[in-house]
Amino acid sequence: MIDLKATLENLGFENIILFDVFKDDSNLLKTAKAIILNGGYEFILFDSLRQTGSVALLKKLILNGKPVYGISAGAIVLGPDLDLFTQLYPEDNFNNDSDTASIDATSIRIYPHYDKHSQDNPQLESSIKAFESSTNSNVTRLRNDEGIVIRDGAAKLLG
Rank of each mutant, 00 (worst) to 15 (best):
residue 28 L to Q: 15
residue 132 E to Y: 00
residue 99 D to K: 10
residue 53 G to Y: 09
residue 117 H to I: 10
residue 125 E to C: 04
residue 1 M to Y: 07
residue 37 L to H: 04
residue 81 D to P: 05
residue 134 S to N: 14
residue 27 N to M: 10
residue 154 A to P: 02
residue 138 N to F: 10
residue 159 G to Q: 03
residue 69 Y to G: 04
residue 39 G to D: 02
residue 25 D to T: 03
residue 44 I to D: 10
residue 137 S to H: 12
residue 65 G to E: 08
residue 65 G to H: 13
residue 41 Y to H: 04
residue 12 G to D: 09
residue 31 T to C: 05
residue 12 G to E: 11
residue 38 N to L: 05
residue 89 Y to N: 10
residue 114 Y to C: 02
residue 15 N to H: 11
residue 106 T to P: 04
residue 45 L to C: 11
residue 104 D to S: 06
residue 144 N to A: 12
residue 137 S to A: 15
residue 121 N to V: 09
residue 159 G to P: 02
residue 92 D to H: 08
residue 73 A to H: 00
residue 150 I to F: 09
residue 49 L to I: 11
residue 59 K to I: 02
residue 2 I to G: 01
residue 127 S to P: 04
residue 113 H to D: 11
residue 131 F to R: 01
residue 100 T to S: 07
residue 105 A to F: 00
residue 19 F to M: 06
residue 121 N to C: 12
residue 126 S to D: 15
residue 10 N to Y: 09
residue 56 A to R: 05
residue 43 F to D: 07
residue 116 K to P: 12
residue 62 I to D: 07
residue 41 Y to T: 07
residue 52 T to Y: 00
residue 64 N to V: 01
residue 142 L to P: 10
residue 79 G to K: 01
residue 100 T to A: 03
residue 127 S to Q: 07
residue 130 A to T: 03
residue 89 Y to R: 13
residue 151 R to M: 10
residue 112 P to D: 12
residue 53 G to W: 08
residue 20 D to A: 09
residue 149 V to R: 06
residue 155 A to K: 13
residue 133 S to A: 11
residue 82 L to I: 10
residue 31 T to P: 04
residue 147 G to R: 08
residue 84 L to D: 00
residue 123 Q to F: 05
residue 92 D to L: 07
residue 46 F to R: 14
residue 104 D to V: 00
residue 3 D to W: 11
residue 137 S to I: 09
residue 32 A to F: 01
residue 87 Q to L: 03
residue 9 E to D: 11
residue 92 D to Q: 06
residue 110 I to W: 07
residue 96 N to I: 04
residue 63 L to P: 06
residue 116 K to M: 13
residue 7 T to Q: 12
residue 47 D to I: 00
residue 40 G to Q: 02
residue 76 I to L: 01
residue 19 F to L: 09
residue 78 L to S: 01
residue 145 D to A: 12
residue 54 S to F: 02
residue 69 Y to P: 00
residue 139 V to E: 05
residue 6 A to M: 15
residue 126 S to V: 13
residue 45 L to R: 10
residue 144 N to G: 14
